[in-house]
Every structure is written in structure tokens, then in C-alpha cells.
Computed example of a mutant assay.
Amino acid sequence: MLDALNSIRLLDILDILIVSFIIYRIMLLIRGTRAVQMLVGIALIIIIYFLSGKFELQTLHWLLKTFLGSILVVIVILFQTDIRRALTQIGKTPFATAGKVGNREVEELVRAATYMARRRIGALLVIERETGLRDYLDTGHRLDARLKAELLVAIFLPASPMHDGGVIIHKGRIHSSGCLLPLSQNPAIDKRYGTRHRAALGLSEETDALVIVVSEETQQISLVEKGRITVYHDEKTLTAALRQLMAPQKTPTRMMRWFSARKSTAPHA
């Protein structure tokens, strides 16, 4: 036992930590999605494969062996959405900004959302952040207009030919309207949410975009981020949440906190 411990190198510990971190991130990525059930199904197939070999069930063993022989291709097909989302997260640059949406733009978005909620006008407002939304921008009608509450309301009026789909805010401007967004396939979504909320969840699961959803049925305003829906009941809290998310404060590192503590406790001359 001691010999085995003594033979462990620093690189071995680093290797274990890296693999553990990757597994942890994968678990966070697939939590609450269909990928969990699919992983359980694959695990059961593997268990049945070994049991069929042990009990000499030749036909079943051969079928499962043939299936598992192409398991990598099966995994890529089944988990293509999760793999794409993971690669997007890895590809993010730590130096990118959250997006060019200032206080004026936030106020216009909140004003439009609250106006439409009171008048039961459904809306889907997408705010692009670090992850580019070019694939979805190209599905809509390009406007490239200044962000104004009145224009957003006009777009989502039921009589407007552009009210279907979502409006994407790119660099603080209304880039496109009528954009088609991916529907979430998460089976755990509350049944009371309709297509508009599912589209917001689907986009937030694949990108880091912020999505404001206005429901014409409940008159509620929801903010969707990272696959989570938060309902806001007044303009003040919605404005504060948007400002915080669009201009997040930098979290001090442990080293910065240590230097700050040393500075505060240092004796004054």
C-alpha cells in the first residue's frame, strides 16, 4: 500500500484532478436534460451485454456486441446537442464582454415588455451576449434599427406580419425580427409553458443569450438564462436583474481578497 502511494507522481494527481473536473462539468451540463435518461439506457445495455456473455445467451450477446461496436457513432448522434453546447462553452473567451446593451437599452426593453404584458401581447426578446447568434439571425427579417420600445411593440402586435418568432438584439440594436429559435427538448419543463417559453429555454440551453418572454395568457414577464426561467412582477426588479446580467461585477479572486485583507489590517503610519 505504501509502495503504491509512494509511486504516485504529481502529474498523476494533476491527471486525476483534470479528469474529475471534466466529469463534473459534463454532469452539470446534462443535469435536467434527456441526456441523463439516455446515459442510463446505454448503461443498462452494457450491463445486459456482460450478463448475456456470462449466461451464454449467444444471440443476444452478438446483437449487443454489434451495437456497442459502433457506440461512439451512436453517442455523437444522440448527444449532438449537448456536445455542441459543451464545445460552445469551451470556445468562449474569458476576455469577452457581456454585450453592448447599456442602461438606455435596458430601460427600452423593460418599457416594451411591461407595456405588452399589460395589453396581453406575447413577445420573445433575445439579447445576444458572448455566443454569436448568426444561425438564428439569418432565419428572420433584418431590420438593423435603433432599440426603441415603440418599435418592439409594433413588431409584436398580432396584426404585424413579423410578430411570429423572436426579436434578436445584437450590439444594442434590433438586428432581426421573426427569428426561429430551437425548442427545448427537456422533458422536465412545466406543462403550463407553451411554444414561446420552450423556444426561449431551447436557445438559452445552447447559448448564453438572455431571453425576455412576455406571456399574453398570464401577462407575466419571464427572464430566461441558462435553461432557467425567472418570473418578474414589476419593472424595478426586472431592470435591476437585466443590468446585473448585462454588466456583471468581477468577482475578486482569492489572491485579491488576501491582499485586500492584508492592506486593511496593516498598521497605519
Results as ranks from 00 to 15, higher is better:
A199S: 09
L143T: 06
R257Y: 02
L143Y: 13
H233D: 10
S260D: 14
G41T: 07
T81A: 10
D3Q: 06
Y115A: 15
R196G: 04
K250F: 05
H170R: 14
A43L: 15
S7Y: 03
L2D: 15
M116D: 04
M162L: 12
L181F: 07
E205V: 01
A209T: 07
Q80V: 03
A117V: 09
D208G: 06
F79A: 03
I8M: 09
I75W: 01
G165W: 00
H170V: 00
V101L: 15
Y24I: 02
E107Q: 08
K65I: 00
I189C: 05
P161K: 01
L63K: 09
G178V: 04
L242E: 07
V101K: 08
N103D: 13
R31V: 06
Q249I: 10
I174G: 05
P182T: 13
G53P: 10
W258Q: 10
L152A: 03
A159R: 14
R243T: 02
V106L: 03
E205I: 02
I48A: 11
K65E: 15
I48Q: 08
R142A: 10
E108V: 02
M27A: 14
T88F: 07
S7V: 09
F259Y: 09
L68M: 11
L2V: 15
V214C: 15
R104K: 12
S70M: 12
L245F: 02
G178S: 10
K263V: 00
T88K: 13
F50V: 02
P248I: 13
L29T: 12
I8P: 04
K226C: 15
L180S: 14
L29W: 02
V214D: 15
D190E: 11
V110T: 04
P252V: 11
K92P: 00
I71D: 01
E225W: 01
L10G: 11
R104T: 04
L51M: 10
S177W: 00
R196T: 11
N103F: 05
R104P: 02
R196K: 07
D82H: 10
F259P: 05
K54Q: 10
R196N: 06
L143E: 12
T253P: 00
V211L: 09
P158V: 01
I13M: 14
R118Q: 12
R243N: 13
D138T: 07
K250G: 06
T251C: 12
D3P: 00
I169H: 01
I46P: 00
R119E: 10
T195P: 09
G69V: 01
M38Y: 06
K226I: 11
R84P: 00
E56V: 03
I45D: 02
V19N: 09
I75R: 01
R34W: 05
G122H: 05
R118I: 01
L245T: 07
W62P: 00
P182E: 14
A113R: 13
V106E: 05
A123F: 02
T195H: 14
V73P: 00
T207N: 11
I16P: 01
V153A: 11
Y193D: 09
N103A: 08
L203S: 07
H61M: 07
I47V: 11
T131L: 13
L210R: 04
R9W: 14
P158N: 02
L51G: 02
I174W: 06
E225N: 03
T97V: 09
R254Y: 07
L180T: 08
V213M: 12
L72H: 06
T265P: 01
D82T: 15
I77W: 03
P94Q: 11
L152N: 02
